[in-house]
Design a protein around this nucleic acid. Structure first.
Length: 444
DNA sequence: GTGAGATTTGC
DNA sequence: CAAATCTCA
């Protein structure tokens, strides 16, 4: 008689260390089969953009290899998870399905599957793997979710965070039902292949993620210069966390162990990721609805196609904005401070609805995250619950003078900077600032 | 009910 | 210093 296998369902947790579901599967002792289901049209699912698909391909390939070393097959299937998962359970003869929870609207799928599988006698269980504390467990004194970051962070920072689980060293594989070849999913761009810059900038996969965490922990003091885009002081961990190559618990404990004056400021940033995850849990339409309803009346301008294209392609004539937008297009990322300037320019100087910019970032960022991306865009727009005041309008020239005084960052991405080939600003900063403030007055 | 406090700024 | 709302304890 053969032992029924355990199925581990991977989603945004493409790692084997500190993976509670995989760890629980090892504890069950039965053979293990892993699966990843590419469900782009399911209820509450937001299909990944172009740059994200590139990352997903490579991170899945890395996970497949890591699991193979443990003797565990990774079955790939494409379609609706609500149908694919029960079918896979039946084909594999599995008596248990384990996964790590997600906090996006797609969790409706997980809830449905969990009850259906349990009804069929399958041991279906989920685990917390993508947060420091689960949204249900973080509440104000009166029992409501936090709407302001600082009290949220004060409530969270002193809580104990569970220690990371080790990667399983001994697992038994099982004969797996057939699946798709990763290459057949067409996640990589062809005709043209625009991913050269991404390949040069990134190496997806858990091993590289862990190596980067180690490296960053060793140079944490340099984080003091994180506001200077020309300086390599960022953690560059955001896509690792987005795809779950690292868990926030691993990052939390490693950076706390590193200590020093920059430990707290960095962990606070991890707190923002957490805050927006919790926000998305409570506000599932974060990416489409103004959290401040007054902004539903905001008189956005009809986007001028020429201006919009100039913004996307980095030809606005505002060097810091253009450098950032070109960095984004080339590498799938943008320095944080430049993101704020580029977003503020689109929203406040071009008066374009923040959702237009949010969608562009969604398509082009390798770290495009369902919670952090719209959360930060709403923060810049002023429409978020704990947002920057609308009248606080970034001046991209002033930001460049303060944070890139010798234009090193600007020149890195705009070779023609300073020559006639570089365009004049497409808008008057002072006039569009006044226009934005006047627009804001209409909804107050 | 009360009052303190609120990422990232511009001019 | 603007400008002044809302959260949270």
């Amino acid at each position: 008689m053969t032992t029924a296998p355990t199925l581990v369902w991977f989603r945004d947790d493409l790692r084997i260390a500190d993976h509670p579901a995989l760890h629980a599967a090892a504890d069950r002792g039965a053979p293990v089969i892993a699966c990843y289901l590419l469900d782009e049209h399911g209820e509450g699912v937001r299909a990944p953009g172009g740059a994200a698909r590139w990352w997903l391909h490579h991170s899945l390939a890395a996970l497949r290899d890591e699991l193979a070393e443990l003797g565990v097959p990774l079955v790939l299937r494409r379609g609706p998870a609500v149908e694919l998962l029960p079918a896979l359970v039946a084909e594999a003869g599995a008596d248990a399905v384990l996964w790590n929870r997600r906090y996006s609207p797609a969790r409706a799928i997980d809830a449905r599957l969990k009850s259906a599988l349990r009804e069929a006698g399958v041991d279906a269980r989920s685990f917390p793997g993508d947060v420091l504390a689960e949204p249900q467990d973080v509440r104000t004194g009166s029992g409501t979710p936090y709407r302001v970051f600082t009290p949220f962070w004060n409530g969270l920072r002193d809580r104990p965070v569970a220690s990371p689980l080790p990667a399983p060293d001994a697992l038994t594989g099982a004969d797996a039902p057939g699946g798709d070849a990763l290459e057949a999913w067409g996640l990589l761009p062809t005709r043209p292949d625009w991913s050269g810059g991404l390949r040069a900038a990134w190496a997806p996969g858990e091993a590289a993620a862990l190596a980067r965490l180690e490296e960053f922990a060793g140079e944490l003091d340099g984080y003091a210069e994180r506001d200077l885009p020309a300086v390599d002081a960022s953690s560059r961990l955001s896509p690792r966390l987005r795809w779950g190559e690292l868990s926030p618990r691993q990052v939390w404990h490693r950076i706390r162990a590193a200590g020093g004056p920059q430990s707290e400021p960095f962990l606070r940033e991890l707190g923002w990721r957490e805050f927006f995850r919790h926000t998305l849990f409570h506000e599932p339409d974060l990416a489409t609805r103004n959290l401040k309803p007054a902004f539903d009346r905001f008189p956005w301008a009809e986007p001028d196609p020429t201006e919009l294209t100039a913004w996307r392609e980095g030809r606005t004539g505002l060097p810091l904005v253009d450098a950032g937008m070109r960095e984004l297009w080339a590498t799938g990322t943008m320095h944080n401070r430049v993101r704020m300037s580029a977003a503020s320019f689109l929203i406040k100087n071009l008066l374009v609805d923040w959702r237009v910019g949010e969608q562009w970032f969604w398509d082009t960022l390798v770290d495009a995250d369902e919670a952090s991306n719209p959360g930060n865009w709403q923060w810049v727009a002023g429409s978020g619950q704990d947002a920057a005041p609308y009248f606080r309008i970034f001046n991209p020239e002033r930001q460049a003078a303060r944070f890139d005084p010798d234009a090193r960052y600007i020149r890195r991405w705009i070779p023609e900077y300073g020559t006639d080939a570089y365009p004049a600003p497409i808008v008057d900063l002072a006039a569009t600032r006044e226009r934005a403030l006047a627009a804001y007055d209409t909804i107050r």
